[in-house]
Design a protein around this nucleic acid. Sequence first.
DNA 1: TTAGGGTTAG
Length: 512
Amino acid sequence: MQSSSISRQTKLSLLKVFIENKKLRSGKSIHAQLIKAPTFDLIQTNHLINLYSKCGHPGVARKVFDTMPERNVVSGSALMAGYLHNGMPSQALHLIKEMSFEENFEHMNEYVFATALASCSEMRALEQGLQCHAYVLKSGLVFHSHVRNALLHMYFESLHMEDALRVYETVPGFDVFALNSMINGFVGSGRLNDAVDLVSGMGKEVELWDHVTYVAVLGLCAASKDLRLGWQIHDQILRRGIQFSVFVGSGIVDMYGKCGDIESARRAFVELSVKNVVSWTAVMAAFAQNGLFEEALKLFLEMGIDGVQPNEFTYAVLLNSCAGLSALKIGDALNAHAEKSGYKAHLVVGNALINMYSKSGSIEDARNAFGGMHQRDIISWNSIITGCSHHGLGREALEAFHDMLTEGEVPTYVTFVGVLLACGNLGLVDDGLYYLTNFMRDLGIQPGVEHYTCMVRLLCRAGQLDKAENFMTYTCTEWDIIAWRTLLSACQVHKYYNLGKRVAEHILQLYP
DNA sequence: TTAGGGTTAG
């Protein structure tokens, strides 16, 4: 094809088609022709930026951008979108700063701020998000639906629900994008009742729902373990003829799994016409969450036969299944497998390795896995603290607890179960009481029966059985058999036969 | 010409 024989209009049309279908090679041939052209064409060059951005080459898009003798706001916003969608949101924000300094730029438009706000969401850069918010309010850009939705999404995703709801109430217009962000925001912040109210109050408006809504609502059913709502939604998906995409399909599998209906989860999975690593991982997780660990591991073999490669979540599910079975050898093999495929460095895999080694009896390997992690979260700390405690390493558990505080991690309900277990191992009655009554209260964590049982165990270990009995009598909680059994066996060890007899009679009354 | 929402782990 001679370049001269193609009109400008045709070149533009071709470029659009190539961009839409991500035909990088074909698009490049147009680029070659444009380079040879005697005059610079702004609009065509903007298309080129868009081409490279959409085809996963933001670096090349940047080169085109840098060599332009003249640019406009579209050049910038196309490149920003390229950065954002190729995992470089910080570059997008950097670019908007550059753009604001350039004099020949027109004023920023709604495209620029929709992308900037989405970049803030992705980076969880609330500070810069607030700056964008201020600007779009002042300029009136907030009334563009894309900007408004990006703003809503930013607040909902960072779980700043009050700010999100304020935007929702003050800026008119409501569409499926806003709805989806809102459902996910409510679910993410644990406001399940609000989410259920929102969803069940929608009546006829369900016609507006799209794939993303269904995935979000299925996630809501899973989080609230609401199988009845789950059935309704599944039924609605079938009636409305919604396509069983891998997203919707995996959402259904996950919903049934989390609601404990493993048969329906299995059936939904089998019926999926397209399965990918997410659907496979979702069904394995469904089995594992319901205690069917061997089935989960078997599925891994079937997945391999199907030619699907595992990702970090797959390894996490499999390692946790090994933990459930105390299957150290398989766990070791999976560890090697994850290392070879480069997934070991992921946080979820590291956490699952700590859990697997700890539950399989190898606390040293668990500590090594913990020590080798590049990145840790509260799950990592809780896993290593409770792991050490369960293996009688009270000193090490408390050391880890203090390291965790030093690193600025905030303890949770689970953390204190590990800490109180550690106090039990070391016979630190006063420390235990201090954690239970002061430390937890200061953090606003309401102690539960697990903590109280640890306290009974601690008092028993220290030989203070009368205090333990008193503690159980005067602490208001739903005591279970574990706590009573702890006290009973302590009576045997410490030869408190009278108390033992009373406790035994009490247990017989409760569990005839 | 450019823009917004999604599944899987603990």
